[in-house]
């Protein structure tokens, strides 16, 4: 277990900067997620912590030891980390037990200790019976469990997880998500989890760092990220809010030809602003601007209504209503967040 500290980390590939001055402190034993769309720099950040990429500027320390700076670079094999890859990366020419034993073998542990710790690690991921199997005989979910056991077997200072669930189907993903949470509670290892899936990030983490275009937009507890996103991007990415460009005048938000009344609990300052409102925070009823319905999508527990709002589309989720596309309905804000520009 160790803490990880990034200070002003920069990374560019040729002329394109991928990571632009990230500073981040991960406490010992903490589970942190790097969340963001593809190309936001989250995987590059993780790979720099792993030592698979070198940084251009800044410093990275693990457990108080400087591992990467402009002056020097500790190679990945000397960092005592564990890593789980999206593509499993289970060596197809080694059996399950040989895969898991590899890190211990490199540490020249006695074979009795290796055997005992491999058995234990395989028990952690419920693969005790599969030790002698070859990877080609395992399913995707089982392969990823082998990878997790291999990453944890040598008591790494930090466990790095690079989209470990993305290659699995939905049911397996949920199952393995639960197992990662259980392992984490049991072992207390510091974990850094890279994902583009907000549900995974919110469900597992102590803190979530939302990344966008190479910078951290917000870093907070999952509850705070969800309830009070600090930028329109975070509001849009986590919780999928509608983002409307317009201006505030008194208690009104004017968006093109339409005017929304702002609810009482929203504090407003006059001037241009971005309004973020989640689909479930809008209400169809008797107040608010009248908007033409574009489409109606039945979601099961609720119904999604899509309205034309100027050039964009406004999504509303609520109880089913008998409206047909083309008809107009009044839409009112129940809650919203304002970001002055």
């Amino acid at each position: 277990m160790a803490d990880v500290q990034l200070i002003g980390v920069h990374k560019a590939y040729g002329a394109t900067a991928v990571v632009k001055g990230i500073s981040l402190r991960i406490e010992s034993g903490e589970f942190i997620s790097l969340l963001g769309p593809s190309g936001c720099g989250k995987t590059t950040t993780l790979r720099m912590i792993a030592g698979l990429e070198t940084l251009d500027a800044g410093t990275i320390s693990i457990g108080g030891e400087l591992v990467d700076s402009e002056k020097g670079h500790v190679p990945p094999e000397k960092r005592a980390l564990g890593m789980v890859f999206q593509s499993y990366a289970v060596w197809p020419h080694k059996s399950v037990a040989e895969n898991v034993a590899y890190p211990l073998l490199l540490q020249r542990k006695p074979s009795s200790e290796i055997a005992q710790r491999v058995t234990q690690a395989l028990e952690w991921v419920r693969l005790g019976a599969f030790a002698q199997r070859m990877p080609s005989q395992l399913s995707g979910g089982q392969l990823q469990r082998v990878a997790i056991a291999r990453a944890l077997v040598a008591n790494p200072r930090v466990l790095l997880l690079d989209e470990p669930l993305s290659n699995l189907d939905a049911a397996l993903r949920e199952e393995l998500r639960g197992e990662i949470a259980a392992l984490r509670a049991r072992l207390g290892t510091t974990m850094i989890f890279v994902t583009h899936d907000q549900h995974e990030a919110l469900a597992l983490s102590d803190r979530v760092a939302v990344m966008h275009q190479g910078v951290i937009e917000q870093i907070d507890s999952p509850q705070k990220i969800y309830q009070s996103p600090s930028t329109p991007f975070v509001a849009g990415f986590v919780g999928g809010a509608n983002r409307l460009e317009g201006r505030v005048e008194g208690r009104s938000f004017i968006c093109g030809a339409h005017t929304f009344e702002l609810p009482e609990r929203v504090t407003a300052v006059d001037g241009p602003a971005t309004l973020a409102v989640r689909a479930e925070e809008l209400e169809l009823g008797s107040t608010g601007p009248s908007l033409p319905l574009l489409a109606r999508l039945f979601l099961g527990s609720a119904t999604e209504f899509r309205f034309t709002l100027g050039e964009s589309v406004l999504r509303v989720v609520g109880p089913a209503r008998d409206v047909k596309p083309g008809e107009s309905v009044r839409v009112a804000l129940q809650h919203a967040r304002l970001y002055p520009r």
Partner: peptide, 27 residues
Amino acid sequence: LDSSLEEAARLSGASPLRTLLSISLPL
């Protein structure tokens, strides 16, 4: 060869040469 197979070996503590000989070559 998927390069994460080699990267996993590096993270497990194998030197570049060891990785080449114990992972890339057998595959």
